[in-house]
Nucleic acid binder design. Structure first.
Lengths: 74, 74, 74, 74
DNA sequence: GTGGTCTAGACCACA
DNA sequence: GTGGTCTAGACCACT
């Protein structure tokens, strides 16, 4: 999960800001020198961690920097 | 094919009647919250199923409520 | 041909530069307060005068400022 | 439908043989100088004509050189 | 002002 | 790395 962690780090350090669009999966694959599938697996990981949000046909966006937030309702 | 099936359902349930004009593709796109191209793919599907008929420059109309049905005997 | 002439003027005065993209036909129609058809007729006029070039699915672009140029070959 | 017809011609003239794999949609888009979506529309057309068969994740293949033909006797 | 075609480029699913 | 689906938005053709 080197790709996922690398991107997660960027988000947590604020290098990628909330709402910002990530490079496309193809671009990321090239940048990291890995296959598209590997990038997609990393994206899935980050999506499940709640760090990014993918929008079909548009792109994937940074969603939250870190804290679970626990805004249950209130 | 959620859009196509949703509209097909309306036609089959008689909520959209024979000869009735559907909203424009642009309106449908807004209503369903999708891009116009997605609506057009759905329209193509329905056209091929024989449920609607599109007239260039005019609109698209309900053509049949149900399949051929072939209830010949019985 | 008020729309065509207005845009032609802009091109000739250099307010619209070579290679620049014009607003979409829809936007132009709104800006001039006319129907889309009127804009399209104006675009056709300008295309025939060699002032603009339309690219399907992309946009229409300024092509030449004015002179017929007569670059026959040489 | 220039792309569809061009490829259909190749198939019918036997330049593309039964079972042969076509270039990828991306390659065809480059070869014909059109967008991939345009190639896909052409492929859909050819699929419906029964000339090709697309396999998700693998490629698209020539299926028949000619229509059913019905050369039963003779 | 509608449907028709196209661009450019994203994410998705499969093998 | 291919085909599959989608976005957003342009010009085209018709009525």
């Amino acid at each position: 999960m080197v790709v996922a962690n690398h991107i997660a780090g960027k988000i947590e350090r604020g290098e990628l800001k909330l709402g910002q669009r990530l490079p496309s999966e193809l671009d990321l694959a090239e940048q990291y020198g890995v296959a598209r599938m590997t990038v997609r697996r990393a994206m899935k990981e980050l999506r499940e961690r709640g760090l990014i949000r993918s929008v079909h046909g548009k792109g994937t966006y940074v969603q939250q920097p870190d804290p679970p937030a626990e805004n249950v309702d209130r």
